[in-house]
Amino acid sequence: MFKKILFATSATEACDHAARVAFDMARRYHAHIDVFHVLGVPTRGYSQVVVDLTTGDEVTLDDNYRDLVKEEIRSYYDHQIQTTDDFAITVTIGHPHREILRIARAEKPDIIVMGGSTGASGSYAHKKAATGSTFQRVAKAAHFPVLVINRPAASFWGGFSNVVFATDFSDAADHAFAFAFKLVKELNCEFHLFHALDITCFQTDNFHTQDTIDDQIRNAIAQIRFRYVSKMGDFKPYAMEVWEGIPFVEIVKYAREKQADLIIMAYNTRQTDDPEASIGSVAEQVILRANCPVISINRSVGKE
């Protein structure tokens, strides 16, 4: 399932919890791990003068500087690298999201692992309330599953055995289900299929009675059976639930209640294929708040 991991990192504290999960996965699943770092953005065009993303200084890029950064990353992750003998460190220049997508297309990893916000720009409040823009751009365009660990609290599980799949019944969610089901079968996990019935519109819309909500919950359960359970054959360790509320809150609460070690959900589900479209706010909020790693799947996953 996870034989090749692309760990995209700023090699700073902001990615420490993502590193914990990435290296743990590499060790646990005997995977090759590519530690990938974009060290700077060229000042213009193909200039060799780059702005170092860690220090903010302008530096002239040559092999020595590249080797120096590689060595710094090697020593930063020294403790974790010792747990695996199958790793590579790659550094490059460019805009981080483009370079991550570029190496992913070339290397075809089973999964891309990233931290959330590195807090590299913007005010403190903004940093805490938004996922990283690099992550957003990668998750939107990647043809591979993207696993994000935004909070340190999400990084202490070690492996996957209890997985929540959150669906909104979109086509993109069907892609996410296909990935999730493959994962739970191969890794022998408990599987929780979950839908959050969005009742936030009820505040401005016509008032809905509890009977209406209960009917919608029953319909959603029937949809879960029809769309997903019917494709699961004789797979038994699963449960399904529908809760009403604010979707991202309910998904995070459900995962916490089940003590899930992974959430899988579609990304940007209601959006078009337009790469400039804004990201799916439910997925973003779940990533920000979850107590476990979140894998986001967009509709291009599996197309390469």
């Binding site: 420490d16 919890h17 909070r151 340190p152 609290a153 202490f156 916490r256 107590n291």
Partner: peptide, 10 residues
């Protein structure tokens, strides 16, 4: 001794 442990076990 790890950092960020406060919410690890909710």
């Amino acid at each position: 001794g790890l950092s960020g442990i406060k919410y690890a076990v909710s």
